[in-house]
Amino acid sequence: MSAPPAARPAVSAENAPNPVRQLASRVGTMCLVELQKLRHDRTELVTRAIQPALWLLVFGETFTRIRAIPTGSTPYLDYLAPGILAQSALFVAIFFGIQIIWERDAGVLAKLLVTPTPRAALVTGKAFAAGVRALAQAVIVLVLAALLGVALTANPLKLLGVAAALVLGSAFFCCLSITIAGLVLSRERLMGIGQAITMPLFFASNALYPVDIMPTWLRVLNHVNPLSYEVDAVRGLLIGTPSRLALDFGVLVLAAVVAIAVASALLGRLTR
């Protein structure tokens, strides 16, 4: 009589995969991939910086001279610079869903989804990769703002806070783009919707003008617009205007978490 097969040794808790470590590993990998793309195509950063530069050079300089928008003791160009910084991050992140659709068409997404990697890890990696790309462009905008004489902080802790706000905002808008991609399933529709919502998001925030001078209906939109909280945090940290940092970061973290969850749930529709 043959001996019964030996039981497999139980997997110890120490050898079990750590979901937090796995998530961090996937996010780090996606960010490294994005940095590699930037290294091979640096011209994209320059071309994407043209529009923020025009906002600062034309809009900012002109409205600083005519003093049409009341910003108190803060020069309008100083007030505008953080808003343009957040706008540039928005424009980078809002079209990230096109990359997801391209990966679906190339068969890359299907291969990623059959791996043990959770969908939330994939989406989170994409979201924070968008943040890395936005930070790379933010450096260019900050240098230009400094050359124009904007009084920027040199406090490293505040600059880290600015980076965190930009990354969280980019993560939300990247996941919003992935969510739209999961709904419309085509690059053309996503491009059209992305172009249709970017400027309303921008104008319905406090990036260009204070909330106090907005009409009532625009104030309502401002309060539910994550970009407004991103701008408020960046402006408060960068040039020292009054801000509600705890509320700003709380909203940005909550918005990013919810957006990651929704985008993860819709990711599978792209492969059907």
Rank of each mutant, 00 (worst) to 15 (best):
A120Q: 13
A120L: 15
A120P: 00
A120D: 00
A120S: 13
A121L: 00
A121K: 05
A121N: 00
A121T: 03
L122H: 13
L122S: 11
L122E: 05
L122P: 12
V123E: 06
V123Y: 09
V123K: 11
T124W: 07
T124N: 07
G125Q: 03
G125E: 00
G125S: 04
G125L: 00
A127Q: 11
A127W: 07
A127F: 07
F128G: 02
A129D: 03
A129W: 04
A129H: 01
A129P: 00
A130L: 05
A130P: 14
G131M: 01
V132H: 05
R133G: 01
R133E: 06
A134T: 00
A134S: 14
L135F: 01
L135I: 01
L135W: 01
A136F: 15
A136R: 12
A136S: 14
A136Q: 13
Q137E: 09
A138G: 15
V139Y: 14
I140C: 06
I140H: 08
I140E: 11
V141A: 05
V141H: 06
V141G: 06
V141S: 10
V141Q: 13
V141F: 05
V141P: 03
L142N: 06
L142Y: 08
L142I: 04
L142E: 12
L142H: 07
L142K: 05
V143H: 07
V143N: 11
V143P: 07
L144P: 13
A145H: 03
A145D: 09
A145V: 00
A145F: 10
A145T: 02
A146P: 09
A146G: 15
A146I: 14
A146Y: 15
A146D: 10
L147R: 11
L148S: 00
L148H: 03
L148N: 01
L148F: 02
L148V: 07
G149L: 10
G149W: 10
G149I: 08
G149A: 06
V150E: 15
V150G: 05
A151F: 11
L152W: 13
L152H: 12
L152C: 13
L152Q: 15
T153S: 06
T153E: 05
T153G: 01
A154F: 06
A154R: 08
A154S: 13
A154Q: 11
N155P: 02
N155W: 01
N155H: 07
P156F: 07
P156S: 10
L157P: 02
L157Q: 08
L157D: 10
L157M: 06
K158M: 02
K158S: 08
K158N: 02
L159K: 13
L159Q: 12
L160C: 14
L160N: 12
G161T: 08
G161D: 01
